[in-house]
Design a protein around this nucleic acid. Structure first.
Lengths: 103, 103
DNA sequence: TCTCTATATCTAAAAATATCAATATGAATT
DNA sequence: AATTCATATTGATATTTTTAGATATAGAGA
């Protein structure tokens, strides 16, 4: 299990789009359309759907998701041609606990 | 009382120096020298002492402190020629609670 | 008033980030 | 194998952040 790093998490979330992505992923079915393959609640949301939500280019969206993943805030799962991203709830919880202690 | 903004807090703390300043201010007497006027625990720490700790220029240190203050994470008090900065514990608590709910 | 001393602000340069278009990759299908 | 679709990566530019030096300000004391 990844050990969370406060600074890296802050850097990733200090951007309005990346913060919004993580927050929207709290209630996937509320913010993203249903998917043919993969349940948004179970498997995560594909990059294309996330891109529509944020209104930025495909490449920027992909880069942002990679950044959130490096910070340990989301996980990705490849299924066929799609990549599904979802929140890493365990790490987010860990981060909040860490903040309570060290911030 | 200022209402905390998650994004602004993340932006301010997504910098290693600013994060370290806030963390060092948790235990002022452990990280900063005693002051002739003003108790580091009660009144806060003057800019000069904070600057020594971070090893950056006076102007940068002052700018960083202003940024932390705009984000609601510290307060400042002017006494004579010195400005003393201390943590805004109420807002920091509020921020952590907000993160627990909204992040 | 003149001069220190501490801090804030202004200006400018260098470094990092944001962002997109183009291209590459990889899986599924024809 | 050629095509298509979704995503990742690369290359390039625009914007923001970082950072320091110079200057301004304000209080304390000679």
């Amino acid at each position: 299990m990844m050990s969370m790093n406060i600074l890296e998490a802050f850097k990733a979330l200090g951007n309005p789009t990346r913060l919004a992505i993580l927050q929207n992923l709290r209630e996937p079915e509320k913010h993203f359309p249903p998917q043919d393959e993969g349940d948004v609640n179970v498997d995560g949301v594909c990059v294309g759907s996330i891109q529509e939500g944020v209104g930025l280019s495909q490449s920027t969206t992909s880069t942002y998701l990679a950044s959130l993943q490096r910070a340990g805030l989301v996980t990705s799962k490849r299924m066929g041609g799609w990549t599904y991203y979802k929140r890493n709830e365990a790490n987010i919880k860990k981060l909040i606990e860490l903040l309570g202690k060290e911030l």
